[in-house]
Write a protein that binds this DNA or RNA. Sequence first.
DNA 1: CGAACGGTTGACAAGGGTCAAGTTCGGTGG
DNA 2: CCACCGAACTTGACCCTTGTCAACCGTTCG
Lengths: 258, 258
Amino acid sequence: MRGLVRQGALTPEDKALLLGLELETRRVSASEVLWYEDTDADLFCVLKEGWAYSYRHLENGSKQILKLYLPGDIIGLRDFGFSRRLAGVAMINEGVVCPFSYQQLLELFGRSALAVGLMATAVRQQALLTERLVYLGRHDAQERLAHFLYELYLRLKRIGAVEDNSFLMPLSQEQIGDALGLSPVHVSRTFSMLRDDGLVTRDRQQITLPDPEALAQLVEFDDNYINESLPTDLSVLSIASLAVDNRKEPGVHSTVDK
Amino acid sequence: MRGLVRQGALTPEDKALLLGLELETRRVSASEVLWYEDTDADLFCVLKEGWAYSYRHLENGSKQILKLYLPGDIIGLRDFGFSRRLAGVAMINEGVVCPFSYQQLLELFGRSALAVGLMATAVRQQALLTERLVYLGRHDAQERLAHFLYELYLRLKRIGAVEDNSFLMPLSQEQIGDALGLSPVHVSRTFSMLRDDGLVTRDRQQITLPDPEALAQLVEFDDNYINESLPTDLSVLSIASLAVDNRKEPGVHSTVDK
DNA sequence: CGAACGGTTGACAAGGGTCAAGTTCGGTGG
DNA sequence: CCACCGAACTTGACCCTTGTCAACCGTTCG
């Protein structure tokens, strides 16, 4: 940071913005909750003293800590681009924080909707990661697989790749295991359980979810982290796609591996 | 995206940038590797067709899949701000990608070093998450705890909160369990094992790592994701701190108390 | 002094890993 | 058209890691 300042990397705009911030620090006590899961996301903080953590409470009564924040860390970038908090944050010991509003962050990105969108996209990917972390930490094989399939179902539906609650899934069970932290053998067993419960049917790579809602309930899926369309729901990709679709060309193959 | 365009949310600068991109699509075959772990990070892609995944290979021979990419997803934001890839990316089936350079991304962020820094900070936090994901998925209790403590050690050292290989850790064993996906009972057992192996000693909240290198080896720690100081290693936080420190109390006791 | 809390230890059970022996299916070659 | 092969999946037996429950201990705090 001093780095940044020294390097003179800050533009006049940056400097103006920084000076314009009304900075205020707040002393917070041990165990104090900075914000709860699912509340309005409006600000983030720099943690100046003390330790904090972000967490998710699960319906089965357990909780998963997602990230520890140490002095100097920024808390709350995770929720940028979402309207509600994906996780709560609480102090561990007493400390000091310095809050900023997302509004200020937006001004920082200033004129570029693309930059905002990219940031939001990155944050969104982080949300998916986070969700998987929760499942690896606190759920058994059946819940992990159910969650995995349901997430896939939602993401594919979003891009129109689901028909009749059914979609193609080109992953081997070994790869699924590598994603969920399970052995391929157990993935197979788990598929059988889900089939026996009538939640998933499968023929080769064709997956069908006879009753997606039932699955959703099993995995307490909060789909707003996938479906929420934020103000700037861009996806540069699509822009890129548009621009490109005109002049197609078969490309170059490079490496392969197995 | 069409959303973005329709909304007219794109500034003239954005549009110019988009038009200025030389877009090229590349057809990629099934199992093709887009890039390997630990190689130079210079570009990212929009996945236009096919499925892909990012992964980490572990020394114990297993592998952890971090994220699945479906058509429309952006691949490689993860590594923005790092010089080397934290994870490999491979195709699952055949598909089409559309590559962009990080350079272009930088131009997008254009004049604001702050914006770049924030993005990099977000990405960096994602790296920590990713690392925990790998440990939850593919490592036993002892390795998880060792990794957790070593990561803490590095992060605290970075901010000067380690003395004589020793630091204060204000977390209860239950909280550690919630972070690592373990029961509090087993956290206790695991601490005992590490103590018996001479890797960690502990007195109340005081943790000492007699031989940090030995720990590092046990957890195959790649510390560049914590220590690498990227070109724009800012941390807005510190700027904030600076701005604030002038007109606030000394309050520089770094952390902790119970 | 006595709760209450966090940590420790032991006994037991369960979820999941590993190994090994099938089974199914798509592809290949005769 | 059929025999064969390999990859992916399935199933069973067995064992190890970890969770659960419970009793116990040491500190801290009222």
